[in-house]
């Protein structure tokens, strides 16, 4: 892999910005394929440095603190409300179809572990952390600090991406566990208040199999890896001065979120097929 030609403040947008709907879709496909190849490159290099070079533990811890600090409040609010929304909607539907809410909690726990907790956490992290990483790295590109790193024979992937990768992997899992707890709490309260389902009935782990736990954890790892890689790539491919940083940030949020959604499908399907 050669030095990325885009990693300088002077480059301009690679593709022209006109055309209608079909041009828009076509452009997205081509940019997507190119981008996917570059993202894969970033991923492979990060793994290489993970294996080969020394890791700066302080840098990782600093990043973990950043991630946690940025996201905890938003996550808690969102996942709390999701617990309430899910219980409300599922309860209503169950009342329509099978007027017996004793398994409401069980279904909730199953979906929470397997799907809701990791995916919602990841979507929120894609927003906060993805934007943060892209903005930091993007402004370093624009102020030529990335070039300066390269001139000192320091690979930005080793120096910048790797600590964020490790930190995000760890924090995604920790935050998912935290969110799970918050969501269970809000679910219990909602079930009690709206449907008079007692906490004892609600807290039902009978439907949570090992396969669900494995699926949930796999998602944590996959999302925790995808978000920093995708948003670092967006940051590193910033062009066009300080406005470019803003555009890189937006791209990071959108692309990280899309990555989560696509990965979600593949992991869920794989789990479904494997654990049938």
């Amino acid at each position: 892999m050669s030095a990325t030609p885009n990693a300088s403040a002077e480059t301009t947008s690679p593709l022209p910005e006109n055309g209608g709907l079909s041009a828009s879709i076509g452009r997205t496909v081509f940019e997507g394929l190119d981008g996917a190849r570059e993202i894969y490159g970033v991923f492979v290099r990060t793994l290489y440095y993970l294996a080969r070079a020394r890791t700066d533990r302080d840098a990782v811890i600093r990043q973990m603190y950043e991630i946690g600090n940025r996201s905890v409040f938003l996550l808690t609010v969102v996942i709390g409300f999701i617990g309430m929304i899910f219980v409300l909607q599922a309860g209503l539907q169950m009342q329509r179809v099978i007027p017996d809410l004793s398994m409401l909690g069980a279904s909730f726990m199953e979906l929470l572990v397997r799907e809701l907790a990791p995916t919602i956490v990841a979507l929120m992290l894609a927003t906060r952390v993805g934007a943060g990483i892209a903005a930091e790295i993007g402004s370093m590109v624009v102020t030529e600090q990335i070039d300066a790193l390269r001139m000192c024979a320091a690979d930005p992937i080793d120096y910048l991406v790797k600590p964020r990768f490790i930190a995000c992997l760890i924090m995604t899992t920790i935050l998912t566990l935290w969110s799970g707890g918050v969501s269970v709490a809000s679910g219990i309260v909602t079930a009690e208040v709206i449907f008079q389902v007692t906490p004892r009935t609600f807290w039902n782990l009978s439907l949570v199999h090992a396969s669900d736990v494995v699926t949930g954890l796999t998602k944590c790892v996959a999302y925790g890896a995808a978000i920093p890689i995708v948003s670092s790539h967006c940051g590193l491919s910033t062009f066009g001065g300080s406005e470019g940083v803003g555009s890189a940030t937006t791209r990071a949020v959108v692309q990280s979120s899309l990555a989560v959604i696509v990965l979600n499908f593949f992991i869920s399907s794989a789990a479904f097929i494997a654990f049938k």
């Binding site: 879709i25 496909v29 979906l111 397997r114 959108v254 959604i261 499908f265 399907s269």
Partner: peptide
Amino acid sequence: VPIVLLTALFTGATMVVQ
């Protein structure tokens, strides 16, 4: 449009799996 289409497609499929 491209983002919404992609999201909707994969989300719909995931809902089925869940």
